[in-house]
């Protein structure tokens, strides 16, 4: 199931990739794009998904929990406790990798989820 096909749940909506403009969002909403690479892309069968939260900012672990909702079959492998599972890595905007501390995201940011062992 791709995220774009996911049913609406609670306060969030997976948005289509086209047509989004930041000024169309409610003032307190945060839209985060998640791009999948490697095994996460393989498991989710999805290249990217956009998630909307009705508050700002958003903590990275909230994004993870949302991904578990959107991709329940993969979700168990995605998280260990409230952290990203071993074997996976996350990067914000292609710039910095997510560590163990809190990582706050603002509207329009992109999270990359990839296999942790990215070399070879």
């Amino acid at each position: 199931m791709s995220a774009d096909d996911a049913p609406l749940r609670g306060a969030w909506v997976p948005l289509p990739d086209e047509g989004h403009r930041a000024d169309q969002q409610p003032s307190e909403a945060t839209v985060v794009t998640v791009e999948f690479f490697g095994i996460p892309r393989q498991r989710t069968q999805t290249a990217s998904v956009r998630l909307r939260f009705d508050h700002r900012p958003v903590e990275f672990r909230q994004v993870l929990k949302r991904l578990v909702d959107v991709f329940p079959a993969w979700g168990a492998a995605c998280m260990a406790g409230d952290q990203l599972a071993a074997g996976l890595a996350a990067n914000i905007d292609g710039a910095r990798f997510v560590g163990s501390g809190p990582e706050w995201l603002t509207d329009g940011q992109t999270v990359l989820i990839l296999s942790a062992d990215a070399g070879g």
């Binding site: 490697g38 599972a85 074997g87 296999s115 062992d117 070879g120």
Partner: peptide, 24 residues
């Protein structure tokens, strides 16, 4: 057989290509 080697089993090292491209 665990997650640490899943990338190599399922996609091979070629999976690096899109990641490194995304990171310029």
């Amino acid at each position: 057989f665990g997650p640490a080697t899943a990338k190599y089993r399922e996609l091979g090292t070629a999976a690096n290509l899109l990641v490194l491209n995304r990171l310029s």
